[in-house]
């Protein structure tokens, strides 16, 4: 247990290291990014529910509670409004510690109401996990610096775990031959139907044509992506973080190019947390020492 604790402290929490103003400012910018996305998604999902009439595949709490009473009503919009209020109060630290927890519960509800349609999308999972990190941190800890450090450690831990889990799922689902280039051909073909139906037109791009033409290129594309996923757990190691985040971001661009699947929220968040932006902020602060509104704001509401 002592070794685990030492590992977590050194790589994920770093409670002993003094927090710099740059870190504090970065955290508030990051938190703003997350709650901004939570608000956007809550309303975006809420508006779509008007068109839904049936539950095809219940997810999460929708397995236990019939969510169809939300369909065709303004209830999802009201839910989005309540989520907005809660995360705003949470952001400015003017509400009880469990505010983010209630927001998380309602955000989960909004998701399962919107997505009990047969598909299980993962594009907003990282945003959801981060809101969960805020919720857990604010309930479990009181001191603000601890809340911030714990939240970031929680995010690194479960983001890394998620990617490695994705890699292992492929091993279990298919086996060692998962990276067979023919599988990529099937997925690219499948996605071509979706894009044609969505936009009314579709042509394969240069990389897709290359992958169709050369089996070995298709195989390498899958293999590189798979290895990157498996190595997701290295996000737990502070020294490896910058490299694995870069590889993961590149993998997402690869997925977009080959399978036309965009994970915008994922990529933006990976770019935000994968690199030590706070060092740049610290540098800028030195240039404008002693008179910085952003620092004062972050200290007040951090």
């Amino acid at each position: 247990m002592e070794k685990i604790k030492a590992f977590f402290d050194k790589n994920l929490f770093e409670y002993g290291r003094t927090e710099t103003p740059g870190e504090l400012i970065f955290y508030k910018i990051f938190e703003l990014f997350i709650i901004g996305y939570v608000i956007h998604l809550s309303f975006y999902w809420g508006q779509y529910v008007e068109r839904i009439s049936d539950v095809v595949l219940p997810l999460g709490l929708a397995i236990y509670i019939d969510v169809s009473f939300m369909f065709g009503t303004t209830l999802p919009i009201w839910n989005a409004a309540i989520i907005t209020g809660l995360v705003t109060l949470g952001y400015f630290r003017i509400a009880p510690a469990y505010t983010y927890s209630i927001a998380m519960l309602l955000f989960h509800w909004q998701h399962v109401v919107r997505f009990s349609q047969g598909e299980i999308p993962h594009s907003a999972n990282l945003i959801g996990m981060t809101l969960l990190a805020f919720a857990v941190a604010h309930v479990c800890f009181k001191e603000r610096m601890i809340i911030r450090r714990f939240s970031m450690g929680f995010i690194f831990f479960f983001t890394g775990l998620g990617y490695t889990s994705a890699g292992i799922s492929k091993l279990i689902g298919t086996g060692w031959n998962w990276a067979d280039g023919k599988h990529l051909w099937m997925w690219m073909s499948e996605k071509s139907v979706d894009i044609l139906s969505r936009t009314g037109e579709f042509d394969f791009n240069w990389l897709q044509n290359l992958a169709f033409e050369y089996y070995w290129i298709a195989t390498i594309i899958l293999l590189v992506g798979w290895v990157t996923e498996i190595l997701g757990f290295t996000m737990w190691f502070k020294k490896a973080r910058i490299y694995i985040f870069t590889a993961t971001i590149a993998m997402h661009f690869g997925i977009t190019l080959t399978m036309n699947i965009r994970f915008d929220a994922f990529v933006y968040q990976l770019i935000l947390i994968g690199y030590p932006w706070y060092k740049g902020i610290n540098y800028l602060l030195k240039e404008k020492a002693g008179n910085n509104l952003l620092t004062k704001f972050s200290e007040r509401f951090g």
């Binding site: 997810l59 999460g60 989960h108 998701h111 399962v112 997505f115 299980i120 993962h122 907003a124 999972n125 990282l126 945003i127 959801g128 996990m129 809101l131 969960l132 998620g162 990617y163 889990s165 994705a166 799922s169 492929k170 279990i172 689902g173 298919t174 031959n177 998962w178 067979d180 023919k182 599988h183 099937m186 997925w187």
Partner: peptide, 16 residues
């Protein structure tokens, strides 16, 4: 494998 936002991320796990 799914309880949003918790997931084992099984997408594209079954080839062919």
């Amino acid at each position: 494998g799914e309880f949003w936002p918790l997931s084992i991320y099984p997408m594209f796990s079954q080839g062919a």
